[in-house]
Design a protein around this nucleic acid. Structure first.
Lengths: 211, 211
DNA sequence: CCTACCGATCGGTAGG
DNA sequence: CCTACCGATCGGTAGG
């Protein structure tokens, strides 16, 4: 059953994943040939097709892998969030920084949501729904206790913030410089994202650390 | 100099534009063959290549056309905005509805911002900069007079709102239903977008019409 | 994991 | 605006 003989396990398969996420994110699925992925890995095309029977199968495996990485990282980020104002901005910042580690994750997510909405919806709901429903409940509890605005629509709020985060990483610099943001590692975009998200959620302003 | 003999002018060229925007938006540039655009128009491939020397030239013309349509529509929408709270939400709603007329406009814009950032930046700055700088000044004036929050970063704020609008039209239903928004013509997403944008901008809440 | 090879489709041209 | 045609590249298979 050990599909590999011995020694290095599925090292090649992992490298195919990495390069596929990168290239699909940069150039899109249709804009990326399995030939180019193979070259990036350093193998021939038929060798790639031994690991993934078809380009379509690679695409689906890449989506699952992409969402799985989030599913592993999200809990760590979110446990910091259950503490009201102060940790809120740091959590959103961490979320942005997580995507910023590899911009192509965000780009690929956007592309797949446009091109294969049902597939990515299914994977997200399967692997991320515990965390999203936890966040919804967190907001509802905050509304009951009065720290979160009563007119927040929890699901729609989270969806809008999520889109802002992904979008800021994927095309924030482009939209930003269209509107004259100084960019330079688009910090102003992230700061404004945090400010908008916070003021739209909480009833009071957080205490400022240093003016 | 009249490039067409007589009778019907560039009716075919316009139809090529329309189908190209639609198909590029739906399937992306790499995912759309000029063959498929020709078929949608009802002509043969070489006939399309008479109007646009290459697929790349068609792409560039489509971008210019896309931004030009916004440049024509934006003034009408924005003249309603110079009136404070009440017209603010109706303006954002109109903006969303404008994109909603043809969802592929938003999708194409996102794709091109990912794939050809410099090109779309140049076209936007050339044709839209009067309106964007007007909006920036409008926010700054509001900050001086105290109706707009002092800690708003005008350019970054506009960039975030613009991204939310485009994103809500392009993939709002997908992200929304991931998080359990009831969707059904994703009205809740638009309402939350308006609420977030408003509360993040103004110092006071608008008067409510009907509770 | 490779070489060799396949039919289909791609963007584009010749020439009318 | 069309027919006819081109080389290049695509995803994928045979067979080892």
């Amino acid at each position: 059953m050990m599909s590999k003989k011995n020694g290095k396990p599925n090292d090649v398969k992992q490298r195919i994943f990495d390069e596929a996420i990168r290239l699909f994110g940069e150039n899109g699925y249709e804009g990326t040939s399995i030939q180019s992925i193979s070259e990036a890995v350093g193998i021939r095309k038929p060798s790639l097709l031994y690991h993934f029977k078809s380009k379509k199968e690679l695409r689906e495996a890449v989506i699952v892998r992409l969402i799985s990485v989030w599913a592993e990282e999200l809990p760590r980020l979110l446990t910091n969030a259950r503490n009201g104002h102060d940790r809120f901005s740091s959590t959103i910042t961490s979320l942005v920084e997580f995507f910023n580690q590899d911009r192509n994750r965000a780009r690929l997510a956007i592309r797949e949501m446009m091109d294969r909405p049902e597939e990515i919806q299914a994977v997200v709901q399967e692997r991320l729904s515990p965390w999203t429903s936890m966040l919804v409940e967190y907001i509802q509890l905050g509304q009951d206790s009065g720290v979160i605005k009563a007119d927040v629509e929890p699901q729609a709020y989270l969806a809008q913030v999520m889109m802002m985060v992904i979008e800021t990483v994927a095309i924030g610099d482009v939209v930003g410089s269209m509107l004259g943001v100084v960019d330079d590692a688009n910090d102003p975009m992230i700061e404004e994202l945090v400010r908008i998200s916070r003021v739209a959620l909480f009833t009071k302003k957080p205490k400022k650390k240093k003016p």
